Simulated scan of single mutants.
Amino acid sequence: MASFELSAFDRRFQAISLVGAIEQQSPYTLNVGFWIRDPNQLIQWPEMVSAHPRADYLWEQTCLEVFIGVRDEDFYREINLSPSQAWQAYQFEEYRYPEDMPPQAAYDIELNQLKRTHYGLNVSLDLTEFMLKYKLKWEDLYLGLTAVLQTPEGAQYYAMQHSSPNADFHNKRDWLHQF
């Protein structure tokens, strides 16, 4: 299991700490855990829903995200995970393309489990169809973990690293996990 401390884009915002952990489970299951420390209880949590529906625009509220890139390829996937237990997977052919809003849903990634816990969020994703369709091995993938945390001070953007002048979760340079 690999873990990463995610940093706020606004370096002055230190009130919340966030750690993401990634675990590959053979042959095609990806487990991700997000541990949130919010001692002042600043995070504004969305209302819980049942049955794990797919929903768009989850990033407009508190939302944790997983980006999956493929070595030497332009296409990638974005998975949005709401603490409400709603989720969605999107497909992109290249950097933020196509520009549809909401983005095009990806149905080659499925949700095994999404659970809000007392420390954050746990998710298990089934990458079987995605990996088989493109003949991928774990070594072909790299991941980015990100979060939009809504607070009374506005949205705070967290990522493994921020190398762009603006918060940009689609910047593949910031997806640091490799298998």
Rank of each mutant, 00 (worst) to 15 (best):
M1P: 08
S3N: 13
S3L: 11
F4N: 07
E5C: 01
E5G: 00
S7L: 06
A8F: 00
D10A: 09
D10F: 03
R12N: 15
A15P: 10
I16Y: 01
L18Y: 06
V19G: 00
G20E: 01
A21F: 08
A21H: 11
I22K: 08
Q24S: 03
Q24I: 06
Q24A: 09
Q24P: 02
Q25R: 10
Y28R: 08
T29H: 10
T29W: 02
N31V: 09
N31E: 08
V32D: 10
G33P: 10
F34H: 05
F34W: 15
F34P: 02
W35H: 13
W35I: 15
I36T: 10
P39G: 08
P39E: 01
N40S: 12
N40T: 14
Q41E: 15
Q41W: 09
L42P: 04
W45M: 15
W45D: 02
V49I: 11
V49R: 15
V49E: 14
S50V: 13
A51R: 08
P53F: 05
P53A: 11
R54S: 15
Y57L: 14
L58K: 03
L58N: 05
W59I: 07
W59T: 00
E60K: 11
Q61L: 06
Q61G: 01
Q61Y: 03
T62V: 00
V66R: 03
V66L: 10
V70T: 02
V70S: 04
V70F: 02
V70C: 06
D72N: 10
D72V: 01
D72T: 06
D74Q: 07
Y76R: 01
E78W: 04
I79Y: 04
S82Y: 07
S82K: 00
S82E: 07
P83R: 07
S84Q: 06
S84N: 09
Q85L: 11
A89T: 11
F92D: 02
E93N: 12
Y97T: 14
P98D: 03
P98M: 11
P98K: 09
D100Q: 14
D100F: 12
A105L: 13
Y107L: 13
D108K: 08
E110T: 15
E110A: 13
L114I: 13
K115H: 14
G120L: 12
N122V: 12
N122S: 13
V123E: 05
V123T: 13
V123G: 07
L125N: 03
D126A: 13
D126L: 09
E129T: 14
F130D: 03
L132Y: 13
L136F: 04
L136P: 04
K137Y: 10
W138E: 10
L141Q: 01
L141D: 00
L141W: 00
L141G: 00
L141T: 01
L145G: 05
A147M: 11
L149R: 04
L149C: 09
Q150Y: 02
Q150M: 13
T151G: 07
T151N: 08
P152D: 09
Q156W: 03
Y157M: 12
Y158H: 04
Y158L: 08
Q161C: 08
Q161S: 14
H162C: 07
S164E: 12
P165D: 14
N166D: 09
N166C: 07
A167G: 07
A167F: 12
A167M: 07
D168R: 06
F169Y: 13
N171C: 15
D174H: 05
D174M: 05
Q178S: 11
